[in-house]
Amino acid sequence: MIELKNIEKYYANKGVKSYILRHVTTSIKQGEFVSIMGPSGAGKSTLLNILGMLEEPTYGEYHFMGEDVTAMKERQRIELYRNHIGFVFQAYHLIDEMTVAENIEAPLLYKKIPGAERKSRIADILDRFNMVAKKDLFPNQLSGGQQQLVGIARALVAQPSIILADEPTGNLQSAQAEQIMDLFKKLNQEENITILQVTHSEKNAQYGNRILTIEDGVIKEDVTVK
């Protein structure tokens, strides 16, 4: 599904290149649950951003579902966002002025899904996440764990093939974090959604089936979890 070949990312400052990522080469298959780990500043988030096409690599090749991402036009990239990629953020990033239901509806609007189907999909996902009673609340009326649930619901409702999650439990207490990680595992196993998460926590990383460890911009380890 994802092919990275010799990805490099650096910033040139007064002729001195400061590298964020060096020689990153890896591939991720459909249905994998990958955790990216490493110390602060190692380049985990940059790698995730590149995978999510929010940043461009300075050098290297990136193929997403067989297509060359670096050669893609803006519009094609946006099509990928609409149909294949779901984002989950550490700070949830729900839109404060929208209710829970509206937040979940937003991606469907951009996908131009007809009203009736939108309604049923939202009802469906609210039901699955046990949040029907909260659908008319605004994000600031929810707890952090609940907000992250909405964030995941929003990512899922467009039926993506991959979810990119940047420290999804970083702002949560451990009980809530566990709940979120269980959800990811379930989605991965039951719906075969590819999941890529950046995490600091060894425990969270164990939920997935593969761990990439990055240090100073280089992949140090690539192990499979049993």
Partner: peptide
């Protein structure tokens, strides 16, 4: 800003 960012990763065109 956050609204813009989120909408963009959900697939909004800039002109929208």
């Amino acid at each position: 800003a956050k609204e813009v960012g989120v909408k963009k990763v959900m697939g909004a065109y800039r002109f929208q």
